[in-house]
Amino acid sequence: MSLSQELQTALVVCFSAVFTQNILLTLFLGMCPFTSVSREVRTALGLGGAVVFVMTCTVVLNWMAYHWLLVKLDLEFFRFVLFIVIIAAFVQFVEMVIDRYSPRLYQNLGIFLPLITVNCAILGASLFMVIRDYTLLVSLGWGFGAGVGWLLAILAMAGIRQRLDESRVPVGLRGPGITLIIAGLMALAFIGFSGVLG
């Protein structure tokens, strides 16, 4: 595959990860923070931003670790342990750097970073990258796209939930109940995108 072809594939994968293959709404990964941290647009944006960054970087790092280490040593079955360790170390490192150089960003983002370490969507993105046999460049597109897709979904949900505060929700459905119903409707809407890329 030539570079330009690869680049094109990366773009397509990136685009489809945002819309047709949205990691949250079609694969249902990362539901936990999606239901609990989607009360306000501002915090949703903070968490979403952190996810985009961490997902992009860890998918690439994990691709390198997988292909350059595990495949060479014939130890593919160890990918779960390795991926989690790399994600945890990376998040630690990023937290340290942000704390040192940008106290303001640390205040806004800092509390979300440790939460992300155990987010299944982050690990899921790395595992899909392996299953689907992406190349390094395509993985980059995939990681970024998956993150942006997650951000888009939680942002939309937070916007809806802010409106929801003003509306008449049946008592028994308040909180997680109505959130899951809305998530389902949003997922249906995103399925509508599936025809966009053949």
Binding site: V81, L82, F93, M96
Partner: peptide, 26 residues
């Protein structure tokens, strides 16, 4: 044996990076 070594090695290396980073960054 190789598996254990490899994973421990990677974990140790990451820990080392973090310790060094802590020394220089934090």
């Amino acid at each position: 044996v190789l598996a254990v070594l490899a994973i421990s090695g990677v974990a140790a290396m990451l820990a080392l990076i973090l310790v060094v980073a802590e020394r220089f960054i934090a």
